[in-house]
Write a protein that binds this DNA or RNA. Structure first.
Lengths: 222, 222
DNA sequence: CTGCCATACAGGATTTTTCCGGTATTTGCC
DNA sequence: GGCAAATACCGGAAAAATCCTGTATGGCAG
């Protein structure tokens, strides 16, 4: 673990030829990357990845036999959350893109990507932690807009009463629950109730979850 | 506590005439607000505000004798963090605006505000929780840009090593520290060290503080 | 009037978080 | 080689957060 050495990569794709092609592309990029390993699919990846063999960036296809890209990202998120996934797929369907984004992938590019853009994507992920093109952002925004208006059910905010909203704001501070109770002029046991009620309503299970929810939904400004 | 009744207001300004003028303006707005009380300055406010006498929105000047707007907002933030402050001041200096914004005020308008805009501001704060005009946003962005480049010292990010950055990302999840340790392949006591080190470097004192810092500085995406 | 539901609050137990004061290992550098 | 700084780690204890079950109150619809 010597500081910030050469970023490491791994490739997951069921087509050997395509993997070799990608490796060739990567070698054309004027930057240094160490390729740790290649895998045929998610199952194969599970065998090859380990504590001492984690890539910084994982280039992965979606359509794969046995264990596809979605299942693989979910598994990685649980077991190797520090691995940055760059999806490399022919699939351009908004549904797939948005699904992957929700699963936390750090980039999504088309398989016919040009060397220059691949270099940019890898560099961006290695340094800023993500690479989202305007195309991807566009899909995401579009999907959000759909969710907000037409759909209706999906983005409906849970019903919170005023006191719960007040509590939510104060939960996004470094006050302890006892201090929050004092500022809300209620018993600590009552804020205990607000918290548990919000855990359920907002589908989170910790104060960090509450804070993140509040920020995401604009209850507090950063 | 009957649902969402008429929003309550309070005014803090040392000029009686101006307060009366504002009240008149507010009455012209086609919306209902209850005015709880008026105060001459921060000190006077401290006497008049109480658990059972907190306004939803507090309209406040900056230049006031005895206790000015800045001190007052700081005090409110500590003792009545749920009160939304709308600054109403002649002061248009970027420095003052940015300072107030940093103190968490929910809006900043000029004293020569028109009835229509005042109505919009109050409505926006009562519902969305804030009212920032483009003018204010502009000042803020400008100040941020200054901070980023010229100033240098002010916005310099603390030096975090790679493992600390990794930890910071995982701290923004609902994993416990034990789970985080497992995912980072280190001992729980080590993440204990990362945490304490970041508390100091980032000037926070709880996990919520860490998460909020991380979001604000783009270490995690929402 | 009465039972239901939402809200405010308690006691008590358990887990997590936070804090403190140390130790071993590694790494760069004089 | 040896020293300072950074990193990984430990035991123990105090504080905070989380969870569960249960009570009192008040509004309100049947």
């Amino acid at each position: 673990m010597t500081g910030k050495p050469i970023p490491t990569l791994a490739l997951v794709d069921d087509h050997t030829l395509f993997r070799k092609g990608m490796i060739n592309l990567i070698s054309m990029v004027n930057a240094n990357y160490n390729i740790l390993f290649e895998a045929d699919n998610g199952e194969d990846l599970q065998k090859k990845i380990s504590k001492d063999n984690q890539p910084d960036i994982l280039l992965m296809d979606i359509n794969m036999p046995h264990m596809d890209g979605f299942a693989t990202v979910e598994w990685l998120r649980e077991h190797y959350p520090l691995v940055n996934v760059l999806v490399v797929s022919m699939i351009q369907k908004e549904e797939a893109i948005v699904k992957m984004l929700k699963l936390g992938v750090k980039g999504y590019v088309c398989k016919d990507i040009e060397p220059r853009e691949l270099g940019e994507a890898l560099h961006s992920i290695a340094n800023k932690g993500f690479y989202y093109t305007d195309f991807i952002t566009g899909k995401l925004v579009h999907s959000l807009q759909l969710g907000e208006s037409a759909n209706g059910a999906s983005s409906m905010l849970p019903v919170m009463n005023d006191r719960e909203k007040d509590f939510l704001k104060l939960a996004c501070t470094e006050f302890t629950y006892n201090e929050i109770a004092a500022k809300m002029f209620v018993s600590p046991k009552t804020v205990d109730g607000y918290r548990n009620s919000l855990f359920e309503k907002l589908n989170v299970k910790s104060r960090v979850g509450l804070a993140l929810y509040a920020v995401k939904h604009g209850f507090v400004q950063l």
